[in-house]
């Protein structure tokens, strides 16, 4: 189970609901998206004036972004633009909000969970804690932290990066008259909340202030425009690679196949290893197989994936040479690790 494709959703049109779960009484919430099985979720939470809770921890990683107002976190006052990443099991000090504040709250592993505690869980990965005022204490940098890259005029502030999954949390903005004439998709889930301003994508139309999306992998989005500019909080759940193209009618399956074809061409040894060890009973993988159409005696995973953009890429001499290479260590890897059910 995973979260459905919620795009676009403008939360400003909806009413808050009273939040009754432990740690949240005295606040109201709107669900932006959630995973029906684990309860992992993205919420807008309004902590009402007079809200207070004791020191406590959650069994889920938690992120919080202050949209407006202030909150007392132990002896620290945090306000507009403040971002927290709180690793599961890390106890936060008491929280109060005298005058109230509006926030985005993300629980990454489970439902909104909190229990009173003034001690960290012994297993907490406390080094992952992030606390900073993103407006005051982080500079805008060019959007080209990944390549292929967004067009100039889309800038980012990277707030958190997970070394295992390359999941990211970041602020991004688009300058007035921003434009980017391509269609993008990614291998990761992508999420955004528009703090202020409007951007436009040619699939979904305008995304205004308070606009939100949770977009699963391989879904087309763009081209992009922003007439007057915008600022947004973005997140991915794993590595963000920009696959750009110009075919508005492709579906997520075609996009995935094209991404796989790029792995086949661009990381051929990795592709072969994954195909051989990916649980498909193919100890020998696609070594030497370059045809874009399946020969009858070769299993489907042994075949170069279809690429709607470069239909004949399997004929390219360099691609063929790469596909035919057999690394000596890969041979050893193969003979030494037959832990799949290949009989």
């Amino acid at each position: 189970m995973t979260r459905p494709h919620i795009e676009p959703y403008v939360e400003l049109n909806e009413d808050y609901k009273a939040f009754g779960l432990p740690g949240f009484t005295g606040s109201d919430f709107k669900t932006l998206s959630l995973d029906p099985e684990t309860g992992a979720c993205s919420l807008k939470v309004r902590f009402n004036a007079g809200y207070s809770r004791k020191p406590g921890m959650s069994y889920s990683d938690m992120e919080l972004f202050v949209l407006g107002g202030t909150m007392q976190l132990g002896d620290q006052v945090i306000g507009e633009g403040h971002y927290l990443f709180v690793p599961a099991g890390m106890a936060l000090p008491a929280i109060t909000s005298e005058d109230g504040c509006e926030t985005l709250v993300f629980f990454n592993d489970a439902e909104p969970h909190w229990q009173e505690s003034d001690e960290h869980h012994e297993l907490t990965l406390k080094a992952g804690y992030v606390s900073l005022n993103t407006y005051k204490d982080a500079p805008w940098s060019g959007g080209s932290i990944v390549s292929p890259s967004v067009a100039t005029g889309c800038m980012i502030k990277l707030l958190r990066y997970d070394p295992l999954t390359e999941a990211m949390t970041f602020l991004y903005c688009m300058t007035p008259e921003f434009m980017q004439d391509n269609i993008s998709y990614h291998d990761c889930g992508e999420e955004s909340y528009h703090i202020w301003g409007t951007s436009w994508m040619m699939q979904f139309g305008d995304l205004p202030t308070g606009g939100y999306f949770w977009r699963p992998p391989y879904i087309n989005h763009g081209s992009f425009r922003s007439k007057l500019g915008c600022i947004a909080l973005g997140r991915t759940d794993s590595k963000l690679h920009n696959y750009f193209h110009f075919n508005p009618w492709t579906n997520p399956s075609e996009n995935l196949h094209r991404a796989a074809s790029m792995l086949y061409r661009q990381r051929p040894q990795l592709f072969k290893w994954v195909a051989a060890h990916g649980g498909h009973n193919h100890p020998h993988g696609p070594v030497g197989q370059t045809a874009a159409v399946a020969p009858t005696d070769v299993a489907p995973t042994d075949v170069a994936p279809n690429d709607f953009e470069h239909v004949d890429y399997g004929d390219d001499p360099q691609v063929q040479m790469l596909a035919n290479q057999v690394m000596r260590f890969l041979e050893a890897d193969r003979s030494g690790h037959h832990h799949h059910h290949d009989d």
Partner: peptide, 16 residues
């Protein structure tokens, strides 16, 4: 830590 989480409370289940 996530592996040590107590199972979801009835209250949380209903919310979900």
């Amino acid at each position: 830590v996530q592996h040590k989480k107590p199972s979801m409370s009835a209250e949380a289940r209903e919310w979900l």
